[in-house]
């Protein structure tokens, strides 16, 4: 019996290890999934909420929303919060990012997407460039990965046209929190219309 549990546990650990994104797997993973996501978006028969579930099922494997939340608040502010506040904030911020993404899907039609150019910034940072062609313009998106303590690579930020999404939020949060309490910010994030 004890042997059985050990086998199970080992299998579980191995399975987890297999699903974690390794450095060499970043490019193929992204290449495959950018295609998959694009085909989901293009599929007009799919309902909005099913699209969301499908797309975020893929995103959630590589996007580290908790780290994004930490960065956007800054470590000083983050440490001031208790665990439940941190969790609540992370969830609200994750939802905000997802809503923002979903609201942009109708901007996407059939642009050509070219993925390529993985750049290792240092031991714990990798950037992956994606280029989108719309009308006669070129849009650059950079996915930024960091290496976790478990040696897997996760996305902590996305640059769109040279603008860091998380940085943008960080600046807004900092300015907002100068005048208003944390609870107000949370409320504002949860408000779908804002």
């Amino acid at each position: 019996m004890r042997y059985f549990w050990i086998v199970c546990l080992t299998a579980l650990l191995l399975a987890q290890h297999a699903s974690a994104l390794e450095e060499s797997a970043i490019e193929p993973f992204m290449k495959k999934n950018v295609e998959v996501v694009a085909s989901i978006i293009r599929d007009k028969a799919l309902k909005e909420d099913i699209k969301a579930t499908k797309i975020f099922g893929i995103f959630d494997q590589v996007f580290d929303y908790t780290t994004m939340s930490k960065i956007s608040l800054g470590s000083v502010k983050w440490k001031e919060l208790n665990k439940s506040q941190q969790d609540e904030f992370s969830r609200a911020f994750e939802q905000k990012l997802k809503n923002s993404y979903m609201s942009k899907l109708n901007l996407y039609t059939d642009e050509k997407i070219v993925l390529g150019g993985m750049q290792k910034i240092n031991n714990t940072r990798i950037q992956l460039l994606m280029t989108l062609f719309k009308n006669n313009e070129k849009y650059e998106v950079i996915y930024k990965f960091y290496k976790t303590n478990n040696n897997e690579w996760l996305i902590y930020d996305v640059d769109v046209l040279g603008v860091s999404i998380i940085q943008t939020y960080k600046i807004q949060f900092a300015e907002f929190l100068q005048k208003e309490p944390f609870e107000k910010l949370l409320e504002k994030l949860k408000n779908k219309e804002s």
């Binding site: 860091s164 943008t168 939020y169 807004q172 300015e175």
Partner: peptide, 17 residues
């Protein structure tokens, strides 16, 4: 729609760009 606060949002967007 992404803006929590429009002015710093646009400012950061512009300066980074």
């Amino acid at each position: 729609k992404d803006a929590v606060d429009l002015y710093p949002f646009l400012k950061n967007f512009y300066e980074s760009r």
